[in-house]
Computed example of a mutant assay.
Amino acid sequence: MSIIPLRGKQKYWRQNNMIYTVTFNPALDYVMLLNKFESGGVNRSKEEFLNPGGKGINVSMMLTELEVDNTALGYVAGFTGEELVNKLKKRNIKTDFITLKEGNTRINVKVKADIESEINAGGPDITNEDINLLMSKLDKLSDEDILVLAGSIPSSVDNDIYEQIMKRLNDKKVNIAVDATNELLLNVLKYSPFLIKPNHHELGELFDVSLKTEEDIITYAKKLQEMGARNILVSMAGDGAILLTENGEILKSNSPKGKVINSVGAGDSMVAGFLAGYLKNKDYTEALKLGIASGSASAFSEGIATKKDVDTLLKQL
């Protein structure tokens, strides 16, 4: 891999493999900023945003900011689906969505005031025929490609769909990152995902324990490794993150300092940064640092952070 210039910008690696993200239930996030939210009363926003939403899409947006080639897969429907695709095109994000015949891509309402509140819609139904179309796309993945499976599963889809995908790709050398919770995560460990990223609360919930120290976190992260996960990245909010690698390393990094403005997409940005850092030279220390810088930069921003914001925070680590 050689370092190459890209029209005045510095691209850090020549990418030989592709990253694909899958979002089963993407959304348009209607973000409303208020000074104060009064339950049961009339509230007026001072500012609004309409942003692409969905965990896999967030990963794709951050990867694109970091100049990492990727393609967003998943499902869209109706006029809201068309708007979602248009917004992603404006951000230069490659998409290969399947258009559903019925329904509309959901709109989620995010209220940010003295407290944060969210109203998440259900989304359109996905049929078995639609699932088969996605599987056909995934069959075209090559060895060493990276697949990101992120987020919850809509009610119209079998809750073992991540397992189905990983089983289908098991004979290929595809590196699969899974960002999910509870049984959805535990059930894929037997297929040895390349990366999983629980936060420390989610890690405790998996084993029904309260994790109070870094030693506790390492102990239970090792259990996930014993169950099949290759690399476990445990985020700890303002306390940084701990990474257990498939090489037996235990790495920890602090978080850069800043004011948290938006928690939506921060974890997804961390996944994107980790993968981007890993692709640079397969170095897990580099991956951890870029993951934390990317996640923190998005937490300190109104939405998914810019590469400039990430580079600034990277210097603090």
Rank of each mutant, 00 (worst) to 15 (best):
I4A: 08
I4Y: 13
K9C: 06
Y12G: 04
Y20C: 01
T21I: 09
T23M: 05
P26I: 07
Y30A: 02
Y30K: 14
L33G: 01
L33V: 10
F37K: 08
G40T: 08
V42E: 13
E47L: 12
F49E: 05
P52V: 02
P52I: 00
G53M: 07
K55G: 02
T64Y: 06
E65S: 02
E67I: 00
V68W: 01
A72R: 02
L73M: 13
F79V: 13
T80F: 11
N86F: 12
L88M: 09
L88I: 07
K90N: 11
R91L: 15
N92T: 07
K94I: 06
T95D: 07
T105C: 07
I107A: 03
I107T: 12
V109D: 12
K112P: 08
I115F: 13
E116R: 07
S117V: 10
S117R: 15
S117D: 12
I119D: 10
N120G: 06
P124V: 00
T127V: 02
N128W: 03
E129C: 03
E129S: 10
D130Y: 09
L134M: 15
K137S: 01
L141M: 15
D143K: 04
D143G: 04
L147K: 02
A150L: 08
G151A: 04
P154M: 05
P154H: 05
S156I: 08
I161G: 01
Y162W: 04
Q164L: 11
I165A: 08
I165V: 09
R168S: 03
L169A: 06
N170I: 05
N170A: 03
D171C: 06
K172V: 00
K173G: 07
A177E: 01
D179T: 04
E183C: 01
E183S: 13
E183L: 12
K190A: 08
Y191V: 00
F194H: 00
K197H: 08
E202T: 04
E202D: 07
F207T: 04
D208L: 12
V209G: 08
V209I: 15
T213V: 11
T213N: 11
E214M: 08
D216G: 06
D216H: 10
I217W: 08
A221E: 13
K222P: 06
G228A: 14
N231G: 07
V234Y: 14
G238H: 14
D239P: 03
D239A: 12
G240I: 07
A241E: 13
I242P: 10
L244H: 07
G248P: 15
G248Q: 12
G248V: 09
N254Y: 14
P256V: 00
S263F: 08
G267E: 09
V271I: 13
V271P: 10
A272N: 04
A272D: 02
G273E: 07
F274H: 00
Y278V: 00
E286K: 02
G291K: 01
I292K: 06
G295V: 03
G295T: 06
S296K: 04
A297P: 01
I304A: 00
A305T: 05
V310F: 09
K315E: 14
